[in-house]
Amino acid sequence: MQQRVWQRSASWRGWRKKVVAACALAFGAAPVVQAQAPAPVPVVASFSILGDLVQQVGGERVQVRTLVGPEADAHVFQPKPADARSVAAARLLVVNGLGYEGWLERLLRNANYRGELVRVADGIEPLPARDSHDHGAKAGHRHEHGHDHGEHDPHAWQDVRHVIHYTQRIAEALCRVDAPGCDHYRQRAQTYTQTLRALDAEIRAAWAPIPPQQRKVVTSHDAFRYYGHAYGVQFLPAQGVSTSSEPSAAGVARLIRQIRAEGVRAVFVERLTDPRLVQRVAQEAGVTPSPVPLYSDALSPPGGPAPDYVSLMRHNTRAMVEAIQGRP
């Protein structure tokens, strides 16, 4: 008797479990679905330094394509159809401005771009372009041969304080195209700004032991005036603002005389430029160019000495300070 009662009880429990399971399916016990991360925002940056800054601010929420990559020269860049297609597909295009991207308007027309465009240098106080009688070409002669940057020097990223401004401009632009990620962008911009402020202080500390009258550096082209203005260094460029400029014989001779008269020891070739002019200047002035190149307008590839903006500024500062101090 007890055995039959137990069997009926067990059957009842089994039937009840089946009923409960069926009701759960019938009345909306939906399967658990994990929330998927949003697709990265497609962003195009005009050259490698800006590409790094966008990645620092955007993190995993952005997919960055750089038009002018590491160790490539934006001064002589010629956009290809593939570049126009990349720009057309982007939601945000980040450029320097101040006339640096002389090819930009043509590219925008070819791409029929309708997305967000931010010129990160807008809002800073630009330095004027070097006068025509300075190291460069003859009076009245255009340096750039189609790459004239106009009345302003565009290389504003050589002052770290300006890159703090760039960072904020990039975060604001990303917020406009991806409002749900705005807190993410602002937090990353704040964190990176702290890194940049520490970098600015580090550069100032590196130059502090060197008397101001000894802070003289010869470079290939006129890309470091913002650095010089910010950190008290006098740069003597062999060429003008663009790497495609043609210096005059008189300008080169004047530079050689100045190196001799002032005992300038820090002579550098930049990574993107033809070394022959600086080598000739150094030879005639009786000095030896540094074996370490400077990075002015582009990053190095990964694994190089300047794969990101912070590394670039540290590398250049260390190289220049050591050259002036006579260290290898």
Rank of each mutant, 00 (worst) to 15 (best):
I170M: 02
S132W: 14
I124Q: 03
D178L: 05
A189G: 08
R188P: 05
I164W: 03
V218M: 10
L174F: 04
H229Y: 04
L199G: 05
P211R: 07
R176W: 08
H152Q: 11
I164D: 02
A179Q: 15
D183T: 14
A230E: 02
D222W: 06
Y226S: 02
C182Y: 03
Q187D: 13
A129Y: 01
V218H: 09
H135S: 03
G150T: 06
H152L: 06
F224Y: 14
H165W: 07
E202P: 00
P180A: 15
R215H: 06
Q158M: 15
P211E: 12
T191R: 14
T191Y: 07
K216H: 12
E125F: 02
D222P: 12
E151Y: 09
Y166L: 04
A201D: 07
Q190H: 10
D222H: 13
Q190E: 14
R225Y: 10
D200S: 09
Q190G: 14
K216V: 14
T167K: 02
V177H: 04
L196P: 03
I210R: 10
Y226D: 00
P212E: 08
F224W: 12
D134R: 10
R130C: 05
D178T: 03
A198H: 11
C175V: 09
I124P: 00
G136S: 06
I210T: 15
A201T: 08
